[in-house]
Every structure is written in structure tokens, then in C-alpha cells.
Design a protein around this nucleic acid. Structure first.
Lengths: 231, 231
DNA sequence: TAGTGGTCTAGACCACTCA
DNA sequence: GAGTGGTCTAGACCACTAT
């Protein structure tokens, strides 16, 4: 039965058997010890193969409960966090960005909540246009927590973008993100050179380090922008 | 130095040290053997911790080259493939779906290409409305490859949705997906009960098993829909 | 060619959870 | 209580690749 006892070959073999329907949805499959015997490998190796399948959502493993075929194979999408520079350059265009605004002001309450700021506390507001071959690619509006990154007002933003600067200055540990669609308002439409009301793809994200919020930003992409992924 | 020698604790400890800037971007960190000695664990355990960090994109590992801090920490977003039923039910609403159309016809060339069909070959076109508490949640337009799933025209689609039926009938191995934003056309706007031209969030996907394409679908979400993720 | 990560093994103990 | 997965160990050999 076994050809080569690598955890990869074993994982692929089991993957095929699952897809072939050897076990029904929700069924229990043999336990690690038995499968290891069947494939002629150590339990450690079989464990690794099974763990990988569990990570992919194909099976569900429980102590004492055994390993079962996931009745709802929840597949996962994995996509890289969009980096404007990479996005543009991998499409073959030349990347450039342009800082439209950088000021200190009191943010609206929605932003204050996200950054967990005191009332009346000021934050740095930054507006950046990302260009692909000198044409608008995305408009970025960002708020930065001054108590975490006090010197952002002096940051040199000609060569590197705020995002790149922040990454070096204050790396984050966690964050959340959201994709959505909005109709372009007048100002955004003008900046992106599209008709007012055009459907724009947006990406919102907030980064944190520990319990401190670093920055929150919203990206409005040019019309037609897509985010691709394989699964 | 070590508190408990679990691969998780070790990974978190190293993660913190990296974020704290103990090593610069691109720098080489001690090798597995040395780190294992420092943490007082087996090399196997250290290897697992480091492998996890490499999977997260924090470090880059090469044989002979050693382990280095990734100068471009590419963070990844992981999101579950949207399942209409789950999406609606986790929001606390009641899920229901409604088949609007199910016919056999010759698909447009863009679809034919995606499904890799012969010219003139027919495919099953399916239009489904997904409802949350009886209000439109998403409109799904789907094409199904008849040569892979010949009996889709007879599938009972009252209890389960096409997607769930297809999963059991013909599980896929791979696929691609894309998010985007479009302005609602008249027909779609009416179906979703929104104004014509409203910005709709869309999700396109195609599933395959081996080299055969099973189905390709496009989902138009109600206005305001967001896809969340943590990273 | 030598150094480093990649992986396998055999055995052990532990932790969860089902019955 | 007992079965199953989760993990750690110590040692070994291999595969890649930088020097």
C-alpha cells in the first residue's frame, strides 16, 4: 500500500481516498495507530499528515472521539494582505504614491472607537494616492495613533509608503480586515477619476500590537479591481 | 529562559522576540540546535515552532542558509469560503433559498472558457436567491458542467442548496475565487430590492476536481455586505 | 564540501472527552 | 474509566545550498 512514507505522500493519498468517497460524510476513519500500520510509517508521521488534513478542514479530529470526515468541508481562502507596491508591480506597472494630506486633528467618533483613543485626543490623518503607471490605483485614507507612533508627522514618505514605514517603526501583532463595496462619493470619484456613484471595492483594516491600536485605514480601489485567490 | 517547552509557548516567545526587534530585518537567527539548547527542548520541538513561524511568513528558512527574519513580513488573511446558510444563520437570521431558474442552455463564451466546454455544449444555468429572514441576502447565478454532474436537473433543491448538493455529489479538489464590486444592473437591483446602480459586493468562484471543471458561480450580495477577517 | 533545515522513527506520557 | 489524539524526546539520515 505504501509507496514512500513521507508525510506529504501519505497526506495526498488520504486526500484522494476521502475525495473518492471511501468514507461517507461524518464517518469515522481508522485511528492513527491503524493508519500508521497500514501505511507502514510511524505514528508521528501519520499524525502530521492527518494534522495537515485537519488544518485544511477536510477532517475533524477529537481526542477519544477519533477522526471523522468533515460533513461540511469548510474550505478556506488564503490571501496575502494587499501591499500596494506589490500589487501594482506584479501587474507589470510602475508603482508610485503621492501623499495628499498629512495633518493632526480630532478624528470622528467611529475612528476614535477603533483606535481606542481618549475623547478630544488628536490623531494623524493621512491621505495617500497609490498610482499604477501614473494612473490612480487606490485611494487610502488612514488614521494613526499618535501615542503609539508620535513621530509620524516627520516620517519621510517619499520613497516608502506609510504602510512600509509603519511596519518598520511599529510592527503589529494582530489586526482585522474587511472587504466591502461602496458607491463613490464626489470627492473620491474625482480623486480616482471615475464617475460619481461608481462601485468601488474597499478594504478596511486596523492593526494592533498587544492591546494598543496602531492605525486604521480604508482603501478605495479603482473600478474593476478584483482580489483573486485559489483554494 | 524556558517556562514550558511546548511548541506553542516557544513559538509565541520567538514571535515576541522578533517583534521586539531582537534581530533586524533580514538578519539570521540562531539555528535550530542552538535555539533548542537555549529553550531546553528537543530539536524536533524547536523545528515545529520555527516551521509555524515560517508558515506565517515571519521568517524564511533555507537549508544551509539558516533562518532569517523575513524583511517583507507578508501577512496572510484567512477566510472561510462563504456558505450562505452559515453566513445568514450566524447573523441570527433564518436562512431560506429559492430557486428562480434552472434550465439547460448554451453558455456565453466567457463561461464556456471557464468550464472548459466544447463549443455548442449545453450547461445547466441556475439562479438562486438566498434569503435572510425572508429578505434578499444574495443572488447567485451559476453554471454547472453537465458532463460532470449530469443529473443536476433532477436534483432536489428544496431542502439543500445547489452548493450543498454539489458538495456531496461531486466534491471538488481545487478552485479559484475573486472578490469585486459592481454597480447593480436593473434586473439584479430588482431582485435584491436595491436601487439600480447600487454598489454590490460580488464573489466569483469556480470549482474543479482534477482537470474537470464542475461549476462556476457569481454571488451578488445585498448592499452593505462585508467580509470580515482577522490576521 | 560542510552546514543547516527537513523528516522519519520508536517510545513515552499527557489531556481531553466519549460512553 | 478508557480510548484517542496531542505532544515531547533523542537519535538518525537525508537533501539542499551557500561558501
Amino acid at each position: 500500500m505504501s509507496t514512500s512514507n513521507t508525510h506529504i505522500a501519505i497526506r495526498e493519498s488520504l486526500h484522494k481516498r476521502i475525495l473518492a468517497g471511501e468514507w461517507g460524510l461524518g464517518d469515522r476513519i481508522p485511528d492513527e495507530v491503524d493508519l500508521a500500520a497500514e501505511y507502514g510509517c510511524a505514528r508521528t508521521t501519520m499524525n502530521r499528515a492527518l494534522r495537515a488534513l485537519a488544518d485544511d478542514g477536510l477532517i475533524i479530529r477529537k481526542r477519544k472521539g477519533g477522526t471523522r470526515i468533515n460533513p461540511l468541508p469548510i474550505r478556506k481562502l488564503t490571501l496575502p494582505l494587499p501591499s500596494m507596491r506589490e500589487q501594482v508591480e506584479t501587474s507589470g506597472a510602475e508603482y508610485r504614491h503621492h501623499t495628499l494630506e498629512r495633518v493632526l486633528k480630532i478624528p470622528p467618533s467611529s475612528i476614535r472607537t477603533r483606535l481606542r483613543l481618549e475623547p478630544e485626543a488628536e490623531a494623524c490623518y493621512l491621505e495617500t494616492m497609490h498610482l499604477a503607471d501614473e494612473r490612480p490605483h487606490a485611494l487610502e485614507t488612514r488614521w494613526i495613533n499618535m501615542s503609539v507612533v508620535p513621530d509620524v508627522l516627520e516620517a519621510p514618505l517619499d520613497d516608502i509608503s506609510v504602510n512600509e514605514w509603519l511596519l518598520k517603526k511599529s510592527p503589529y501583532t494582530t489586526g482585522d480586515a474587511a472587504f466591502a463595496a461602496v458607491n463613490a462619493d464626489g470627492k473620491t470619484a474625482t480623486a480616482l477619476e471615475v464617475d460619481s456613484g461608481a462601485a468601488l471595492f474597499t478594504f478596511d483594516f486596523t492593526t494592533r500590537t498587544g492591546d494598543k491600536c496602531i492605525t486604521t485605514a480604508k482603501l478605495y480601489f479603482r473600478v474593476g479591481h478584483q482580489v483573486f485567490s485559489k483554494f
